[in-house]
Simulated assay, not measured.
Amino acid sequence: MNIALVQHAASPPSAPAVERGAHAVREAADAGADLVVFPELSFTPFYPRVPVTERSQSALDLAEPVPGPTTEALAEAAADCGVVVVFNLMERDGGRTFDTSPVLDADGTLLGRTRMMHITEYEHFHEQGYYAPGDTGAPVYDTAAGRIGVAICYDRHYPEYLRALALQEADLVVVPQAGTVGEWPDGMYEAELRVAALQHGFFAALANRTGTEGQMQFAGRSFVTDPSGAVLAQAPGTEETTLHASVALGRTADAPARRLFLRHRRPDQYERGAVASNQDD
Rank of each mutant, 00 (worst) to 15 (best):
V6I: 15
H8Q: 12
P13C: 04
A22F: 00
A29S: 14
D30R: 13
A33K: 02
A33H: 02
F38I: 11
E40M: 09
S42V: 01
P48Q: 10
P48I: 05
A59I: 01
L62F: 04
T71I: 08
T71P: 01
A75Y: 01
E76H: 07
G82L: 08
F87A: 04
M90L: 13
T97L: 00
T100H: 03
V103S: 07
D107Q: 10
G112S: 11
T114R: 12
R115K: 12
M117G: 03
H124Q: 05
G129M: 09
Y131C: 02
P133R: 12
D142Y: 01
D142N: 09
A145K: 06
D155M: 05
R156L: 13
E160K: 08
L162D: 02
D171C: 04
V174D: 03
V175Y: 03
A196S: 15
Q199M: 12
F202G: 10
T212Q: 15
T212A: 13
M216V: 10
M216K: 01
F218I: 01
R221N: 15
F223H: 05
S228M: 13
S228C: 05
G229E: 13
L232S: 06
Q234S: 14
G237Y: 08
T252R: 02
A255D: 08
R265C: 00
P267I: 02
E271A: 13
R272S: 11
A276H: 01
Q279T: 13
